[in-house]
Amino acid sequence: MTKRVPFQGAEKESLFAALDRHREAVLWKLEGLDDEQLRRPMTASGTSLLGLVKHLGGAELGWFCRTFGRATGPLPFDLDEDEQSDLRVRPDESTADVLTFYARARASADQVIEELALDDLGRAWFGDEVSLRWVLIHMATETARHAGHMDIVRELIDGRTGDHNRG
């Protein structure tokens, strides 16, 4: 069943629900595809479904954990060495590895969201202070943006469209 943002929910609950709804859409875009289809670059820039999931895992850890001084655990990429490495799945990374990384990132982010208040401040990678509220809005937007990319990539692979299972 598709998650909904509460029509009259509290602000934090609503922001979290918006993020989580888009996270579910990201995972739904992967259903029913084999490893080759998940890894297949479908644009000139090399965008693949699995690469977008890896990128979103890194974004969750960066924005929720690093910003608020929490550990990220090991990252399966090195942006200092290659600024696009979070968007590519290496041959030695399995689909299960990427999905496990995304699940770990989501769980870590969820813990930060649970523990902090919306007005609590952290320091973004570019040096400015940002609130948890801002990070939640940013990550809901970022996740929705990439879920939209995934919708197009999925349609190119097998014609399937939509953002959630309607059944």
Score class of each variant (00 low, 15 high):
residue 80 D to I: 06
residue 24 E to L: 13
residue 54 K to S: 04
residue 67 T to A: 02
residue 66 R to Y: 02
residue 42 M to C: 07
residue 131 S to K: 05
residue 143 T to S: 03
residue 1 M to L: 13
residue 38 L to A: 08
residue 95 T to M: 07
residue 133 R to A: 04
residue 107 A to H: 08
residue 132 L to W: 05
residue 73 G to L: 04
residue 37 Q to T: 11
residue 99 L to E: 05
residue 9 G to C: 10
residue 78 D to S: 08
residue 23 R to S: 01
residue 58 G to W: 04
residue 131 S to G: 08
residue 128 D to A: 14
residue 76 P to C: 04
residue 56 L to P: 00
residue 13 E to D: 10
residue 118 L to Y: 07
residue 86 D to H: 06
residue 136 L to Q: 06
residue 23 R to E: 07
residue 21 R to I: 12
residue 96 A to V: 14
residue 123 R to L: 13
residue 62 G to Q: 05
residue 96 A to T: 14
residue 148 G to V: 08
residue 48 S to G: 09
residue 154 R to T: 00
residue 22 H to S: 13
residue 14 S to Q: 07
residue 64 F to L: 08
residue 129 E to W: 09
residue 149 H to S: 09
residue 88 R to N: 12
residue 103 A to P: 06
residue 159 G to F: 08
residue 105 A to Q: 00
residue 59 A to C: 15
residue 116 L to Q: 03
residue 37 Q to G: 10
residue 164 H to W: 15
residue 148 G to C: 13
residue 143 T to I: 09
residue 118 L to S: 03
residue 110 D to L: 10
residue 29 K to S: 04
residue 148 G to Y: 10
residue 61 L to D: 03
residue 45 S to E: 14
residue 5 V to K: 00
residue 40 R to S: 11
residue 153 V to A: 00
residue 29 K to D: 03
residue 29 K to W: 03
residue 16 F to W: 12
residue 162 G to D: 08
residue 58 G to E: 07
residue 165 N to C: 13
residue 164 H to G: 11
residue 160 R to P: 05
residue 105 A to E: 09
residue 124 A to T: 07
residue 97 D to L: 05
residue 93 E to F: 03
residue 23 R to T: 06
residue 35 D to I: 07
residue 131 S to C: 10
residue 87 L to E: 12
residue 89 V to N: 08
residue 140 A to I: 00
residue 66 R to M: 06
residue 61 L to P: 01
residue 39 R to N: 02
residue 19 L to W: 02
residue 13 E to C: 11
residue 108 S to Y: 00
residue 8 Q to Y: 15
